Simulated scan of single mutants.
Amino acid sequence: MRPLWTIAAGIALLATTALPASADPNPYGDPNLVSMFDGKTLDGWTQAADGQFKVQNGAIHANGTARGWVYYTKQQAGTFRWIFNVRQVKGNHAPTVLIWGTTAPIRDALSAIQFQPPNGGHWDYRPGHNNGGGSLFKQFPHTKFDVKKWAQCELIADQTTGVARMACCPLPDKATTCKATEVLRFTDKTAGRVGPLAIQIHNKGINDEYKGLYLESPVVTKPGEFITT
């Protein structure tokens, strides 16, 4: 019969090997959010051209080499919740993200709908459009956020209705979240589609940074509602 101490040791070893430590939970209280970025590598992301992005100080950092984008390749999404933190280190155009685009074929800006966090600028890159979108976009008044400081943004989109909304807020120093306000809404039932979620660099010379990126698709928690406002 084995001594009790050897049995206890075996149980302890099993606990350490069979039950790996879980990833840090997201700060939004939504268990269905999936982390899109490990803070160390660009695994799961594809660049328009090599060398346009790197990981710097725990953030996806645009090197400013050229106009381009990096898109998430582990999952495309049509109806989703996308949360991230963003700031601009240097640049002459607002940070930009792309939704409801396509990678087959790949055209400029992925033929996508562009949202400009955190203040709510926009563009419509779909073939036959390539314009500011006019009445398809509605901007909401708010105190202008400083793009040089970290901001939190949440995008919620519904493929079936063609409605996509963005809420943002300035992220105080050492804070993990902030209470957001809606800054932009897009509506076009013909626009909703399953496509890549992408970070766009609008011009050469822009250094934008993103971190704390989370995706929920399908949306289980409060469909059609913000969880950060």
Rank of each mutant, 00 (worst) to 15 (best):
H61S: 12
H61T: 08
A62C: 04
A62Y: 01
N63V: 03
T65I: 11
T65R: 04
R67L: 13
R67T: 13
G68Q: 14
G68I: 12
W69S: 04
V70S: 04
Y71T: 06
Y72E: 11
Y72V: 03
T73C: 03
K74L: 07
Q76C: 01
Q76A: 09
Q76P: 02
G78P: 11
G78D: 11
T79W: 13
F80K: 11
R81A: 11
R81L: 15
R81Q: 14
I83A: 09
I83R: 11
F84N: 10
F84S: 05
N85Q: 14
N85W: 06
R87H: 14
R87G: 07
Q88P: 05
V89T: 04
V89M: 05
V89N: 08
V89Q: 09
K90C: 02
N92P: 07
N92Q: 10
N92Y: 06
H93V: 04
H93C: 05
A94I: 00
A94H: 02
P95A: 01
P95Y: 00
P95G: 00
T96D: 05
T96N: 04
V97M: 00
L98N: 02
L98D: 03
W100K: 08
W100P: 11
G101N: 10
T102Y: 15
T102G: 15
T102S: 15
T102H: 13
T103D: 10
A104M: 11
P105N: 05
I106L: 07
L110N: 08
L110K: 06
S111P: 09
S111G: 15
S111R: 13
A112Y: 09
A112Q: 14
I113Q: 14
F115D: 03
F115C: 01
Q116F: 00
Q116A: 01
P118Y: 07
P118T: 06
